[in-house]
Amino acid sequence: MLIDFHGEVSESRISEILGDVEKKLEATEEDFKKQRKVYNILVETLQNLYYHTDPFGGEELSDGEKKRVARFILGKAEDHYHVLAANYIDSDNIAPLKARLDKINALDKDGLRDYYKEVLDNGQYSVHGGGGLGMIDIARKSRNKLEYDFTEVNDDFGLYILKIKV
């Protein structure tokens, strides 16, 4: 296990984890290509957690907002890296997210590349500017299908787990 994080997803925590991950990869991964690929995928995964974790069950912060918590694991088994990201999301967001993941998983390498270019050039921006490219990029760079699971927590929230093999 290289990293096992469970806690609040704030901008500073995400930056800290990325700094940690980069140092560990530089120290342990000799293949520079792989080092970059894994780091790139982790940047997207962690920034996804930062933007898309909804505040279920978290304690209240001083500004009245609820804490948003997530879990993130990076491990290495033989020659593959395994990334696991788990976070709570609003139930309303499950169906569209699942549809996106299924669409991505149905595409092969060239199909993903075309889809990436299409979304890149569609002129739409999300609040943080990525406009839906993150998951496509992760699938493209990992060269593996995205494994995911949704578990209903209550009427309002679900737990979303994403597993990526690199």
Binding site: N40, V43, L120, Y125, G130, G131
Partner: peptide, 13 residues
């Protein structure tokens, strides 16, 4: 560039 994230992708475009 060594790395860029997807938030930067659209901006670079």
């Amino acid at each position: 560039l060594e790395y860029f994230n997807t938030s930067s992708s659209k901006c670079i475009l």
